[in-house]
Each structure stands twice: as C-alpha cells, then as structure tokens.
C-alpha cells in the first residue's frame, strides 16, 4: 500500500511543534523559577564577584612582584653575559 506522505507528515508536524513548544515552555518556567530563587537567596548580581575582588588585587600584586623579580634577574643575567 502506498504511504500517504502528506497525511503522515502533517501528523509529524503536529507532534513536532507540540513537543518543541512544550519543551520550551517548561524551559521558560524553569528559567523564571531559577531567576526567582537566585534573586532571592543570592540577591545582588554584583555581589558575587565581590569576594574575589579583594583576592584579585593581592594576586595582581604578587604577579607584579614576580614580574619585577624576573625582569631584574634577566637584566642582571644579560649584563653578566655581556661582561663575560
């Protein structure tokens, strides 16, 4: 028996569009839910980077010191090389 392509594909379309929409609607609800929960318990979006910020400059400082030491060492080495 010949398959009714158009009939079958219309059924697929109904199934497919329904699944896509239901999936995205559930996703939307979950997104709203998580935004609500996170907004309630972790109120300030800017607050999260805050704990890292005191650490940031400290690390920066360390990195700068390390860079200076490295540069000085390199400088001395090159000096001694040119002398030798």
């Amino acid at each position: 028996m010949e398959i009714d392509l158009v009939g079958e594909s219309i059924k697929f379309m109904i199934l497919g569009m329904t699944v896509v929409f239901v999936f995205l609607m559930i996703l939307v609800q979950f997104m709203k839910l998580q935004a609500y929960i996170i907004g309630k318990y972790f109120p300030d979006p800017v607050a999260t980077p805050a704990p890292t910020s005191p650490k940031g400059p400290a690390e920066d400082e360390q990195a700068r010191v390390a860079a200076i030491i490295a540069a000085v060492t390199e400088f001395r080495k090159s000096k001694s090389n040119s002398k030798g």
């Binding site: 392509l5 594909s9 609607m25």
Partner: peptide
C-alpha cells in the same frame, strides 16, 4: 528575558512546515 524562547520555538515551523512541503512535492 526567558519568554523570548517561545519565538525560537515558533521558527521551528520552518522544519515541520517544509516537511509537509517536501511530502506534498513528492506526492503531487
């Protein structure tokens, strides 16, 4: 802006609409 996700769903009609289109093209 979570609800804009539904727009991404509607555009999938491009897939299923053309599925019917392809079926019609080969059947008719």
């Amino acid at each position: 802006n979570p609800k804009t996700a539904l727009l991404g769903g509607a555009a999938q009609f491009g897939i299923f609409g053309s599925l019917v289109g392809a079926a019609a093209l080969s059947q008719y």
